[in-house]
Design a protein around this nucleic acid. Structure first.
Lengths: 208, 208
DNA sequence: TCACATGTTGTACTGCCAGTACAAACTAGC
DNA sequence: GCTAGTTTGTACTGGCAGTACAACATGTGA
């Protein structure tokens, strides 16, 4: 598949707000052509149909998140500080692109196959966070966890749903302030937990 | 909008696996008719089109989650124990309906309008959890948090993404064992946090 | 038991739109 | 100057969501 010319690539973002608002199904190719300024025949020349617009936008968003999180977890700070930075990094990317996030969450199955998305998230987020958890045990800033994979997914979920809620509320006047506020709450939760008393074991309800 | 007859309602679940696999767009009404055993004209008599199938399924899933979480947070136990029960409850509902969860996450924008989903989640999950957080401060089992709304969303996100990951992996031989394993990891994270040292304040990076 | 209302469903049909084909003109590279 | 790739307007096809309608079945109330 040929690489999309940079000009067209940036123009495709013009479709994000439209798709966020209407959903892909209710958005005609003609509408996308008008919103992006790319004629319909040109879209079909470069992309494999309407779904490919979202495929491209998802791929770009994941690259941005992977890049930002990659930078955040690669500093010389201790693991705890880097975890905080990773939370901030993902939230900032999401809140800088609220329409893009909304468009994708509404039609995720048309942007990718979900098992492929799981693989992409593994590479972009879960593995770096699992590595960070290991680093934290090594440098003493984080506690060991029994199931790092489940923890990494939950960290991603905590960030994503909070970020999406902000994105659904509509673009903010100050995305960076929102990212700071949300990340403070999320980091407080993820680092310190909610329990007043750190009992040795979590009660295990409903083991059946 | 008339209430769907119970027989038809239960038959509609037959479409969940199909839609989970192909996506709604690639699933014809004829396919849904065949998978559910409901003739096409009958579907159109009772529902307002293809999207209404997912609307119905989403509504049902949210009711199940709201019901299960509602029961979990209403026992006489302390708030911490009830929070654990709520995590288990949501995961169990999700893992008992993996195809339904996958179908909905792939075509969420066709099942509902996202602002409406936000309102439904507020009622079904966020408010009960925020109330629980308040109860926990009162009974001393949970620490106060500065932003209960953000915490409730993050709790939901942590559970949902972990549950979806399990759902995407395909139905398990033992959904209750998966729910127990995941909920142990999630509760450990949410209650005890990852930090070794509960510093007074979370470092506030990137305040710009 | 009858009349009426509602539910069920097969089938034919319409309109819309994704996507294709093709041709013409432009641009890039050698 | 030639060739290949890019850009794009326009006409077109096929598939399918959704509608209309008619016929039959079931339920309800008097």
């Amino acid at each position: 598949m040929r690489k999309l010319p940079a000009k067209l690539a940036s123009q495709l973002y013009g479709a994000a707000e439209l798709i966020a608002e209407r959903g892909l199904d209710a958005t005609k190719i003609e509408d996308i052509a008008e919103a992006t300024g790319i004629p319909k025949a040109t879209i079909y020349y470069h992309l494999d149909g309407k779904n490919a617009v979202l495929e491209f936008l998802l791929s770009d968003l994941l690259d941005m998140i992977a890049g930002a999180v990659g930078v955040a977890v690669s500093t010389a700070e201790d693991a705890r500080t880097r975890l905080v930075a990773a939370v901030v990094a993902q939230l900032e990317v999401m809140l800088e692109h609220p329409y893009l996030c909304r468009a994708l969450v509404g039609d995720l199955g048309r942007a990718t196959r979900l098992p492929e998305l799981a693989l992409a998230l593994r590479a972009a987020f879960y593995e770096p966070i699992e590595q960070l958890l290991n680093d934290g045990v090594a440098d003493g800033s984080l506690r060991p966890v029994a199931d790092p994979a489940a923890v990494a997914m939950s960290v991603f979920g905590a960030i994503t749903v909070a970020g999406l809620s902000a994105a659904v509320d509509g673009p903010s006047d100050d995305p960076n302030a929102d990212a700071a506020r949300l990340s403070a709450a999320i980091c407080e939760l993820l680092l310190n937990g909610l329990a007043t008393d750190r009992a040795g074991e979590t009660p295990n309800l409903r083991a059946t």
